[in-house]
Design a protein around this nucleic acid. Structure first.
Lengths: 217, 217
DNA sequence: TGTTGTGAATCTCTTCACAGCT
DNA sequence: AGCTGTGAAGAGATTCACAACA
């Protein structure tokens, strides 16, 4: 009935980076910035920056470029849910705990509010200011706290089962760190962070560079 | 002089996933697999799987599909450096240690062999069977141990400096977890894993789904 | 019948190039 | 002179569709 994905996934990813860079500039008192400067900082090109900002309907001025504070605020209001987004994490192992520490207090509108695990030693403890709960309480917690986002940091063999439980509980977006592809209904947005693949890609391109190095230097 | 990037970055990423899935199948005694089955497992499409395998010159048979063991081995010999790839990690904080634990013993041809940090309490200790060394020894270690890959898990404000040091030491591939874009020479392959962006993307698409839910259910 | 391998078509994203503005 | 905003062109990646085959 209505248009879907007005703004592409890639553009959303870059907007997330832009606003982070803009916060840094703002903290340094920077007032204006040109597309080519933001391009350099973000590792992109000037036309790409302009296209991305066009996508959210933001306009700069040919003389001053973009206003840092105003643009930053525009990206925020475009991307953030005004009511905030609450997430939970399932799997309080090494990676899960590191992710929690990493995100703690990073964005005011986006918070991980609880962890889940099936290890009795962890259940009942507090991790990064979040209670670690029994999996049995997942569904009620999601309902009661208005959780819409789930992070999966369990081993591969449990990931699909956890994904199913999250969806059943009502979560509509998942960040999956398990090294498999989840099979979930199409209305659920899943972002896969595949650390093994990332690492192996680097290893491959290191390897494939070897040959050209002979000519290079 | 010669062609660069015969096989695209995206295809390499999927090949990494395919071989992981194939290992699992192999362990279960599976002998053959069709492109559409591998597609389902990898979250892709059958023609895409066939294209990817075409890229590495692998052929199946119309009757039996692909041989699991043989295909797995073909991807290995295509992707892996026969002499193995050694990497180091810089930044032994929560995330760095979790990454080390995650990769430990995952691939025989790809190993993290040392960690680096500037915290005197960590230097000299052992993390996941790796020595944690002083940054001062980075350059000599890279040279002596034949390191070609670096993982960066330091805070944003130190990441560029660390990237420069890695490149200066001779590393040609970097996996960067710091939430900034590194500025490095073009012969160095950099893969950015931007956890903040990944999370914010999920939050955005959760948010943008809200409207269509009204019609959905 | 059901699969692979692949040229051709399609779709998506990026870059070019320039009018319009200051 | 140097920027933004954007139509048009270009590049890349994906999907289609079908010949060849078992």
């Amino acid at each position: 009935m209505e248009t879907r994905e007005l703004v592409s996934e890639k553009t959303i990813g870059r907007l997330s980076l832009y606003r982070r860079l803009l916060s840094g500039l703002l903290a340094k008192g920077r007032q204006n910035i040109y597309s080519h400067e933001l391009a350099t900082l973000s590792g992109g090109t000037a036309p790409q920056v302009r296209r991305d900002l066009m996508a959210i309907g933001y306009s700069g001025s040919p003389s001053k470029g973009y206003e840092v504070a105003d643009l930053s605020e525009s990206i925020n209001s475009f991307m953030d849910n005004p009511d905030g987004t609450r997430g939970i994490i399932v799997g309080a192992g090494n990676l899960g705990r590191a992710i929690m520490a990493y995100f703690e207090g990073r964005r005011p509108k986006l918070k991980i509010v609880a962890a889940f695990d099936n290890d009795p030693n962890k259940i009942g403890s507090e991790i990064c200011n979040c209670p670690c709960c029994d999996m049995a309480y997942l569904k009620t917690t999601v309902a009661q706290m208005g959780i819409s986002l789930g992070v999966i940091t369990v081993p591969a063999n449990r990931a699909q089962e956890v994904g199913d439980k999250l969806v059943d509980a009502g979560v509509t977006g998942i960040l999956n760190f398990a090294p498999i592809r989840l099979h979930l209904p199409p209305n659920v947005y899943v972002e896969h962070v595949d650390l093994t693949t990332s690492m192996e890609k680097v290893a491959y391109f290191v390897q494939s560079n070897k040959d050209s190095d002979v000519a290079g230097a």
